[in-house]
C-alpha cells in the first residue's frame, strides 16, 4: 500500500467526462510527473484531488492515511497533509500574505483559538519566513501585500511554493508551476522544491512541458491523454517526449518542449 493512492479516479466538469479512470500510487520520497497535452485532464486531476467544488467525482477513490479523501472538504484534505500549488493563484484583496500564511499555518497545526500551545509564535514564524524567502529570492516587501494582488506571474508562483514550504505537506501537487515563468524563476522554484524533497514528501508535478523536469528530476513520469494514462515509466519518458512531443497519440499533436519564442 502506497502512501497516497489514486484508484480508478473518474471526474467530470459541467457534465462532461474528463478523467476516465486514473490510477496512480505515490510514496513519500518520490517525485512523479504527470505530463499531457492541452485538454488531457491535467487540471481536472489536480483540482479533483484537492476537492474544488467545480469538479464532480464520478467514481474511484483516493486513499491517504487510511481515508478516502474524496469525501473530505478541501480544508480537511489540506490539514491531513495535502497541498496544491495552483496554476492560477487567486487574488484575495484586503488580506496580507503574512496574515494568510500565519492563519494557514495555525490551521494546519490544529490551532482553533483555544489551545495556545498549538499557535505559531511570532518568533518562530519570522524565522521560518526568513529562511524560505531567501531560498525563493523574495524579500520582505512581499509580505504586507494582499494575497496575489498585483503580483507578477513569477511572484505568484514563488508565493505558492513559499506556502508549500511553510505548510510542509506530505503530498504536494504542483499544477503547471512552470507556466509563465522565466528561467531564473523556474530555478528558484526548483531549488525550493528540491530542498523540500526527502522521505517526508511525495510530489506530483503536473506539466505540459519538460522544462521544469530538467530542474526537478522526477522518479516517475506518466503521460495523460484524454483522461487516461497512456504511458508510465521512469525519467526517460520525459526525454522521449522532449523529442517527439505528444504526436505518438494521434489526436494530440503537440510538442512537449517550448519553442524558443515561448521561453519567457
Amino acid at each position: 500500500m502506497a502512501d497516497f493512492e489514486i484508484k480508478d479516479l473518474r471526474a467530470s466538469v459541467e457534465g462532461k467526462e474528463i478523467l476516465k479512470g486514473v490510477t496512480l500510487a505515490i510514496n513519500k520520497g518520490e517525485v512523479h510527473a504527470v505530463m499531457g497535452p492541452n485538454g488531457s485532464g491535467k487540471s481536472t486531476l489536480s483540482h479533483t484531488l484537492m476537492g474544488h467544488p467545480g469538479y464532480t467525482v464520478d467514481g474511484g477513490e483516493v486513499i491517504f492515511k487510511g481515508q478516502n479523501v474524496l469525501a473530505l472538504e478541501p480544508d480537511e484534505r489540506a490539514r491531513l497533509g495535502m497541498f496544491l500549488a495552483l496554476q492560477y493563484p487567486v487574488v484575495v484583496p484586503g488580506i496580507s500574505m503574512t496574515n494568510f500564511l500565519r492563519t494557514a499555518l495555525n490551521a494546519k497545526r490544529g490551532y482553533d483559538g483555544k489551545d495556545k500551545s498549538k499557535q505559531v509564535t511570532p518568533k518562530e514564524f519570522r524565522s521560518l519566513l526568513k529562511s524560505e524567502l531567501e531560498v525563493l529570492h523574495m524579500d520582505d516587501s512581499f509580505l504586507p501585500r494582499y494575497i496575489n494582488d498585483g503580483f507578477s506571474g513569477g511572484e505568484k508562483k514563488r508565493a505558492e511554493i513559499l506556502q508549500m514550504a511553510i505548510l510542509k505537506p506530505e503530498i504536494a501537487i504542483l499544477d503547471e508551476t512552470d507556466s509563465g515563468l522565466d528561467i531564473d524563476s523556474i530555478k528558484f522554484v526548483a531549488d525550493a522544491v528540491n530542498r523540500m524533497r526527502g522521505p517526508d514528501l511525495g510530489v506530483l508535478i503536473i506539466t505540459h512541458y519538460t522544462r521544469i523536469l530538467q530542474f526537478i528530476k522526477p522518479d516517475f513520469v506518466h503521460v495523460l491523454v484524454d483522461g487516461k494514462f497512456v504511458l508510465s515509466g521512469g525519467p526517460e519518458i520525459a526525454d522521449r517526449l522532449e523529442k517527439t512531443g505528444y504526436s505518438e497519440w494521434a489526436e494530440a499533436d503537440e510538442p512537449a518542449v517550448l519553442k524558443p519564442e515561448e521561453v519567457a
Partner: peptide, 26 residues
C-alpha cells in the same frame, strides 16, 4: 475560487469567509 484557495491551505470554510469579508472592508 477565493474560498477554495483559502480552504486548500487548511483554513475552514467559515474562517475563510470571515477572512474574505474582513479583506473586503479592509
Amino acid at each position: 475560487e477565493q474560498l477554495f484557495y483559502l480552504m486548500s491551505r487548511g483554513i475552514t470554510r467559515s474562517e475563510a469567509e470571515t477572512m474574505i469579508v474582513n479583506g473586503f472592508i479592509e
